Amino acid sequence: MQEITAAEVITRLNNKETLHLIDVREPEELALAKIPGILNIPLGTLPLRIHELDKNNEYIIVCRSGNRSGNAAQFLEYHGFQALNMIGGMIAWSAAVKKKKLLTGVDK
């Protein structure tokens, strides 16, 4: 399974790359924090919604800590998709965003 860090995702977003992000957390978890523009497909519904995805895209999969997203990435890879697990999940995302603000003094 391929992985990507939260800092790498932030850099790619700041570089205006088109990313296909999927958050596999439950909707109530998204209320706490989410990446702007992310698609929510809870892990339990992924097999039912896999037809919504395009095998020509690379997907970055996100959850709270990286465990569920790892399972989702493996599931997608098994079905012929390109998927990267964002290691550390939203915990790492929040830390990376905070670090970027501290380093630059602005929200990126």
Rank of each mutant, 00 (worst) to 15 (best):
T45N: 11
H79L: 13
L103F: 10
Y78K: 05
L32Y: 13
A95D: 07
A33K: 08
L53P: 03
V9C: 00
I10E: 00
I10V: 09
N71G: 15
I41R: 04
S94Y: 12
L103R: 11
G88C: 02
L21S: 04
A7S: 14
A95M: 11
Q2P: 07
G88N: 01
E52P: 05
Q74I: 11
K98T: 13
L53N: 02
M86D: 03
W93S: 05
K99G: 03
A33M: 15
H51E: 09
V106R: 13
G44K: 03
P42A: 08
L103E: 14
D54I: 03
L21T: 00
N85V: 06
I41Y: 06
K108P: 06
R64Q: 02
L46W: 04
P36I: 09
A96K: 06
E29D: 10
L13M: 07
P47F: 11
K99H: 08
N57H: 08
H51Y: 13
Q82K: 14
G37Y: 15
L48A: 15
V9W: 01
R64E: 07
A31W: 10
A72Q: 12
V106L: 13
I35V: 06
A95P: 05
L84H: 07
T18F: 03
E26T: 11
M1Y: 09
I50C: 14
I4K: 02
P36W: 03
L39V: 14
L13Y: 08
A96P: 00
S94M: 12
G80P: 09
L43W: 09
L30C: 13
P27H: 03
T11Q: 09
E58N: 02
L76G: 04
E3S: 12
I41H: 00
L46H: 03
I91C: 03
L21E: 00
N14K: 12
V24G: 04
S69Y: 12
L19G: 03
C63K: 01
L43P: 07
T104W: 06
R12N: 02
N14E: 11
F81V: 04
G66T: 03
W93Y: 05
N14T: 10
M90I: 13
I50A: 06
D107N: 07
H51Q: 12
K101V: 11
A73W: 01
Q2R: 11
R12M: 13
A83H: 02
R49C: 08
S69G: 10
M90P: 02
G88V: 01
I4Y: 08
I50M: 12
A33T: 08
V106T: 07
D54Y: 14
E3F: 15
G88W: 00
L13T: 01
P47N: 09
Q2K: 14
A31P: 07
L84I: 10
E3D: 12
K16D: 04
F81A: 09
L39T: 14
R68S: 08
P27C: 14
G80T: 02
G105S: 04
L102W: 07
E29W: 08
G80M: 12
C63L: 05
L84N: 09
S69T: 10
K55H: 04
V62G: 01
S65Q: 06
